[in-house]
């Protein structure tokens, strides 16, 4: 019962946050909307016994990443509000139509029963630090290590794109 009530409260909050993130003209409001969504998702993790993941979600996403976003927004300037001029006129009605189609699809799919293969979670399924650490460094070791490659890509890519000075590219590009 409590779980259902929580689900509806924070489900609506998550969707509201997502919509306001896309909708808000002021980028700070967008960032706050995203934060609301992140928090609401953390609540879902708690109700699914993923306490550690929920804590990480709050600290990393709602905390660190959002701070980073706000820094970037402040650097670029808050006063620049986004232009709503649309070059393709049919785009917005088409988006609304597709959204309606999606909602209808979700409602139809949600009302039917589908075969799932997930096993019932046993007593040992509990998102504690021990379990997460055990999974991460035993079974999921290789994907975890490969994310390090992703970080190298990100660092090298950011340097490559940001280090550019006009006139750097010789020859025919100048």
């Amino acid at each position: 019962m409590v779980e259902t009530v929580l689900f509806f409260i924070f489900g609506i909050a998550a969707i509201f946050g997502a919509i306001s993130m896309v909708w808000a003209r002021n980028p700070v409001y967008s960032a706050l909307g995203l934060m609301l969504t992140m928090f609401s998702i953390a609540v879902f993790y708690v109700s699914n016994a993923g306490h550690f993941v929920a804590a990480v979600q709050v600290i990393v996403y709602a905390g660190a990443v959002m701070t980073l976003f706000l820094f970037v927004i402040m650097l670029i300037g808050v006063d620049k509000s986004e232009s709503r001029k649309d070059d393709l006129r049919f785009q917005r009605p088409a988006a609304v139509g597709l959204l309606g189609l999606l909602i209808a699809g979700v409602l139809i799919a949600g009302s039917a029963a589908w075969t799932t293969g997930t096993r019932q979670p046993g007593a040992d399924v509990n998102g504690t630090i021990e379990n997460v650490g055990d999974m991460l460094f035993r079974r999921w070791l290789l994907p975890f290590e490969i994310t390090a490659l992703l970080l190298i890509v990100a660092a090298a890519g950011a340097i490559a794109l940001a280090y550019f000075k006009p006139g750097d590219e010789e020859g025919d590009a100048a």
Partner: peptide, 27 residues
């Protein structure tokens, strides 16, 4: 041999390509 592994490999591959595609900033 695992779909999560495949996803991470896909991201390593794709993100490198995104940067390579935009390397010449003067155009």
């Amino acid at each position: 041999a695992n779909l999560i592994m495949l996803f991470i490999a896909l991201e390593v591959f794709s993100i490198s390509l995104y940067v390579l595609a935009g390397f010449t900033r003067s155009r």
